[in-house]
């Protein structure tokens, strides 16, 4: 049986690793290569690396850094940040990246998904969707580059991205980001019940029980940042990843 993946999500800013809370308050947590080495040794299921300022600063992906990441990873690597063209995607794949994660560019130009998936297959194109609750408590599609909620029904946007050729969806809850107080189960349930492609839930995981709750609600995979880099009440930086047996025990019991 296919296992539910548990994926460390690493945020890059200026070549360093950071972790945010509710998409701001980025705290430096260390050197990305070192972190990737640890996750490789601990046999993490997969890695998601997102450059959170590339699009904002209209920058290209940092190819030489990404190539070094790929060289350390004997697990699948998904990279997102600053990808605007099929040429950039081609270059990233040639460096040893399995999947690319699209977000900002797709909000302006959905055909980018189609162009890339036609050449490399839909399994290599992940669309990342940030969802934030409005003051009315409704879920809305959040544009991290401008910090605004867009006037688009978010689930329609997800469906259109999948129809355009995205093979996987990363669904990130902005309100839960970095808080480690549990994931948005309602959001995960809404998305997973109407998606035919794998759903990666992100935002809020602070324990293995949180990860399990997301899986029970239909997530194919759960990604987390803080959970893998912070330890204890004072958020000391300690990079960890649960053992395979721990994950098997928690995820395969009573599902």
């Amino acid at each position: 049986m296919l296992k539910n993946r548990v994926i460390p999500c690493l945020l890059l800013r200026n070549g360093g690793l950071v972790k945010t809370r509710k998409f701001s308050d980025a705290k430096y947590v260390g050197d990305p290569i070192n972190a990737i080495r640890i996750f490789n040794e601990k046999e993490a299921d997969e890695l998601l690396v997102l450059d959170i300022t590339a699009s904002k600063e209209n920058r290209e992906p940092d190819y030489s850094l990404i190539e070094r990441f790929a060289g350390e990873c004997f697990m699948p690597l998904c990279y997102g940040g600053g990808i605007r063209s099929p040429e950039q995607a081609r270059k990233l794949f040639s460096l040893g990246v399995e999947k690319i994660c699209l977000q900002t560019a797709v909000l302006e130009n959905a055909s980018l998904i189609t162009e890339i998936s036609r050449e490399f297959g839909c399994q290599s194109v992940v669309v990342s969707v940030d969802v934030k609750k409005s003051w009315l408590g409704r879920y809305g599609l959040y544009a991290s580059s401008t910090g605004k909620i867009l006037p688009l029904p978010w689930m329609d946007y997800v469906q259109r991205s999948v129809a355009a050729g995205a093979g996987e969806v990363v669904l990130n809850s902005v309100d839960r980001d970095g808080l480690m107080q549990g994931m948005d189960i309602e959001l995960i349930r809404i998305a997973s019940s109407s998606l035919s492609v794998p759903l990666i839930a992100l935002g809020g995981a602070g324990s293995l029980d949180d990860i399990k709750a997301a899986v029970i609600s239909g997530a194919s995979a759960v990604a987390a940042g803080s959970f893998f880099v912070f330890h204890g009440p004072h958020r000391a930086v300690l990079i960890t990843y649960p053992s395979y047996n721990e994950l098997e025990t928690i995820l395969n019991s009573s599902i």
Binding site: L2, K3, N4, E46, G167, E168, P198, A221
Partner: peptide, 10 residues
């Protein structure tokens, strides 16, 4: 069945 079959399997 979710397709693609993506992830770790024994």
């Amino acid at each position: 069945l979710r397709v693609p079959h993506m992830g770790w399997n024994s």
